Lab assay of single mutants.
Amino acid sequence: GKRLNIQLKKGTEGLGFSITSRDVTIGGSAPIYVKNILPRGAAIQDGRLKAGDRLIEVNGVDLVGKSQEEVVSLLRSTKMEGTVSLLVFRQED
């Protein structure tokens, strides 16, 4: 696979993607993946982020050990017109 650095500018329609966690172990944390890209928002305008990408970092914060809720609040904490920096891991087909 490969790592991608993606910067998304948060506009009025938001970042435009949803996340999910897979393989949750009890008391553990699961990897966070991009669930889908919404028809409006920064992600589809940028065009690089894809469903199935694994989020590794948000704005330089390592997501290991973070819950899905914590990751959502990290993403939401970005101000309007601010930039969210994502490091994602993509499995090659």
Score class of each variant (00 low, 15 high):
Leu4Asn: 01
Asp93Gly: 08
Thr78Val: 13
Gly11Thr: 12
Ala42Leu: 02
Ile6His: 00
Asn5Glu: 14
Arg3Val: 13
Thr83Ile: 12
Val84Cys: 08
Asp53Arg: 01
Gly1Asp: 13
Arg54Ala: 08
Glu92Leu: 08
Val88Phe: 03
Gly47Leu: 01
Thr25Cys: 15
Arg90Ile: 00
Glu69Thr: 12
Lys50Thr: 05
Leu4Ile: 06
Gly41Met: 00
Ser18Leu: 09
Ile44Phe: 09
Leu55Ser: 02
Ile44Leu: 09
Gln45Ala: 12
Val84Ile: 09
Leu38Trp: 13
Gly16Val: 04
Thr25Glu: 15
Ser77Thr: 09
Ser18Met: 10
Val72Ala: 15
Met80Tyr: 09
Arg3Asn: 13
Pro31Phe: 13
Gly1Ser: 09
Phe17Lys: 01
Ser73Thr: 11
Leu4Cys: 01
Leu87Lys: 15
Leu74Asn: 04
Asp23Glu: 08
Leu8Gln: 00
Val84Tyr: 03
Ile6Thr: 01
Glu57Lys: 12
Glu69Gln: 13
Asn59His: 03
Asp62Gly: 12
Ser73Leu: 09
Val61Pro: 00
Glu92Asn: 15
Ser29Asn: 11
Gly82Thr: 12
Arg54Met: 09
Arg54Cys: 08
Asp53Tyr: 02
Gly47Met: 02
Ser18Val: 05
Glu69Met: 09
Leu63Ala: 07
Gly47Glu: 05
Gly14Trp: 00
Tyr33Cys: 05
Met80Val: 12
Asn5Cys: 14
Glu81Pro: 10
Leu49Cys: 01
Leu74Ile: 11
Leu86Ser: 01
Leu8Arg: 00
Met80Asp: 14
Leu63Gly: 02
Gln45Asn: 10
Ala43Ser: 02
Leu87Pro: 02
Ser21Lys: 08
Arg90Lys: 05
Ala42Gln: 03
Thr25Asn: 09
Phe89Ser: 14
Thr83Tyr: 12
Asn59Leu: 01
Gly60Ala: 04
Phe89Thr: 13
Lys50Leu: 07
Val58Leu: 04
Lys9Leu: 13
Asp93Trp: 04
Leu87Arg: 09
Gly11Leu: 10
Ile26Tyr: 10
Thr25Pro: 13
Lys9Arg: 14
Leu8Tyr: 03
Gly1Val: 07
Arg54Asp: 05
Gly60Asp: 11
Asp23His: 09
Leu15Ser: 00
Val24Gln: 11
Met80Ala: 15
Arg90Met: 01
Lys2Phe: 15
Ser18Lys: 06
Gly28Asn: 15
Lys2Met: 12
Asp23Tyr: 09
Lys2Ile: 09
Glu13Pro: 04
Ile44Tyr: 15
Ala51Cys: 07
Ser67Thr: 12
Glu92Gln: 10
Lys9Tyr: 13
Ser77Ile: 11
Ala30Pro: 15
Ser85Lys: 09
Lys2Thr: 05
Arg22Lys: 15
Asn59Ala: 05
Pro31Trp: 10
Lys66Ser: 06
Val72Gln: 11
Gly47Ala: 05
Pro31Ile: 07
Arg54Gln: 13
Arg3Trp: 08
Glu13Ile: 06
Lys35Phe: 02
Asn36Thr: 14
Ser85Arg: 14
Asn36Val: 07
Thr20Met: 11
Gln68Asn: 13
Glu13Phe: 15
Ile56Ala: 05
Thr12Asp: 10
Arg54Tyr: 04
Thr25Trp: 04
Met80Arg: 11
Glu69Leu: 09
Thr78Ser: 09
Asp23Ala: 05
Ile37Tyr: 00
Asp23Gly: 13
Gly47Phe: 02
Ile19Leu: 10
Gly11Ala: 06
Asp46Gln: 03
Lys2Ala: 04
Gly16Arg: 06
Val72His: 14
Lys79Val: 09
Asp23Asn: 13
Gly47Ile: 00
Gln91His: 15
Glu57Thr: 13
Tyr33Trp: 10
Gly28Tyr: 12
Val88Glu: 03
Val88Ser: 02
Asp53Leu: 01
Gly1Met: 15
Leu55Asn: 00
Asp46Glu: 02
Leu15Ile: 09
Gln68Cys: 14
Ala51Thr: 07
Leu75Thr: 02
Lys9Asn: 11
Glu92Thr: 14
Pro39Leu: 05
Ser18Cys: 12
Ile19Ala: 00
Val24Pro: 15
Pro39Phe: 04
Leu86Thr: 03
Arg3Cys: 13
Phe17Tyr: 03
Asp23Trp: 06
Arg76Gln: 13
Leu75Ile: 13
Ser21Val: 08
Gln45Pro: 02
Glu70Gly: 06
Asp46Leu: 00
Leu8His: 00
Val72Thr: 12
Arg76Phe: 12
Phe17Asp: 01
Glu70Lys: 08
Arg54His: 06
Ala43Met: 01
Ile37Met: 01
Ala30Cys: 15
Gly14Met: 02
Leu87Phe: 06
Lys35Ile: 04
Val64Glu: 10
Ala43Asp: 02
Lys2Asn: 15
Gln45Val: 12
Phe17Gly: 00
Pro31Tyr: 11
Asn59Glu: 06
Leu15Gln: 01
Arg22Trp: 07
Glu13Thr: 08
Arg76Ser: 15
Leu86Arg: 00
Glu81Gly: 13
Glu81Lys: 12
Asn36Gly: 10
Glu13His: 10
Ile32Trp: 05
Lys9Ile: 13
Glu92Gly: 10
Gln7Ile: 15
Thr83Met: 12
Thr20His: 09
Leu74His: 04
Val64Pro: 03
Gln91Lys: 10
Ile32Phe: 14
Phe17His: 00
Ile44Cys: 13
Arg54Leu: 08
Pro31Met: 12
Glu69Gly: 10
Pro31Leu: 13
Leu38Thr: 09
Lys66His: 10
Glu81Val: 05
